[in-house]
């Protein structure tokens, strides 16, 4: 029982991280039908900014977090303006290769700025771990889940209660119809890019204390987030949540009950299985277009 709970804790901690990254993927997909392969690099930027602001400059926690998120969001907006909007008559696959190029570029930039070494920062607070039936819930895990909940509730409120959020959602449902009622679709796309980068930054900020951060950390974690988004169903907020947690928990139990060497294989096998059974992810959204 104790082990079971411990695996579960490990699963939801990783799951919350995957979910935040998956939301970033999903949100962008909703507005642009684009998968951003540089998303993992935004996570990396978030972590590394946190290292700089919180770790080296010793800013207080909250300003450091805000500053890190603002920086990465700005980078996301810049990327959209310089690399995505300049393409005329874009095909999806072309934009995707641009994001692949961007991911290499950002990784190189990260290496130039922060060097090749890994860094770590202390947890946000130094409470002893919570003890539940002998299983330990780490203080940073509580922070991760808390920030994750805040983010999702915030997003939900933004989409349902604010005019901008509603406009974004309308734009995601039908660009044309939204345009007819006067929603500036280009601005909505920019906004989606910015928000998606924000999500990446949030993920980067919350994992900075649990893991070791280096310029090349983004690829693998971005990939996991992408899997989570696909697993749940692209374009759906709830899908991203379910996908993220499912992937995290699967991995943890994969380690516990199968083998740690095959944990990724277990997760991917199940993913293939789910895709075969439900070809649109767990929460199937509208038909996903081809490349």
């Amino acid at each position: 029982m104790q082990e079971f709970i411990q695996y579960f804790f490990s699963g939801i901690t990783n799951g919350a991280i995957y979910a935040v990254i998956a939301i970033g993927f999903s949100m962008l997909y909703n507005s642009t039908e684009l998968i951003n392969f540089a998303h993992g690099e935004f996570v990396m930027l978030g972590s590394m900014c946190m290292i700089t602001f919180f770790g080296s400059m010793h800013l207080p926690l909250i300003p450091a977090i805000i500053l890190a998120i603002v920086c990465v969001t700005a980078a996301g907006l810049l990327f959209e303006r310089l690399a995505i909007r300049t393409v005329k008559n874009p095909e999806h696959i072309v934009l995707i290769i641009i994001t692949v190029g961007a991911s290499i570029f950002l990784r190189g930039l990260g290496m130039l700025i922060w060097g090749k070494d890994a860094f770590s920062i202390p947890p946000f607070s130094s409470h002893p771990p919570l003890d539940i039936h002998g299983a330990k819930l780490l203080s940073q895990s509580i922070w991760i889940i808390l920030i994750f909940l805040l983010t999702t509730v915030g997003l939900q409120l933004f989409y349902k209660k604010t005019l901008t959020g509603k406009a974004m959602e309308a734009n995601a449902i039908s660009k044309r119809a939204a345009w007819i009622v006067g929603i500036p679709s280009r601005l909505m796309v920019t906004l989606a890019f910015g928000l998606s980068a924000t999500m990446g930054a949030v993920a980067g900020v919350i994992i900075a204390p649990v893991t070791m951060c280096s310029y090349d950390m983004g690829t693998m974690i971005g990939l996991k987030g992408f899997c989570a988004a696909m697993l749940g169903g692209l374009g759906s907020l709830w899908g991203a949540l379910i996908g993220g947690f499912l992937l995290g928990i699967l991995e943890a139990f994969g380690v516990g009950f199968v083998s740690s060497g095959l944990k990724d294989a277990t997760a991917f096998l199940l993913l293939l299985f789910i895709l075969y059974v439900r070809p649109g992810g767990i929460i199937s959204s509208a038909d996903v277009k081809r490349f």
């Binding site: 082990e3 411990q6 695996y7 804790f9 490990s10 699963g11 901690t13 990783n14 991280i17 330990k136 780490l138 994992i207 649990v210 893991t211 950390m217 690829t219 693998m220 974690i221 991995e251 943890a252 139990f253 380690v255 516990g256 740690s260 944990k263």
Partner: peptide
């Protein structure tokens, strides 16, 4: 090599 959390392995 890039795992962020190893509590599952440690539990085992």
């Amino acid at each position: 090599a890039k795992d962020t959390d190893m509590t599952a392995q440690i539990t085992k």
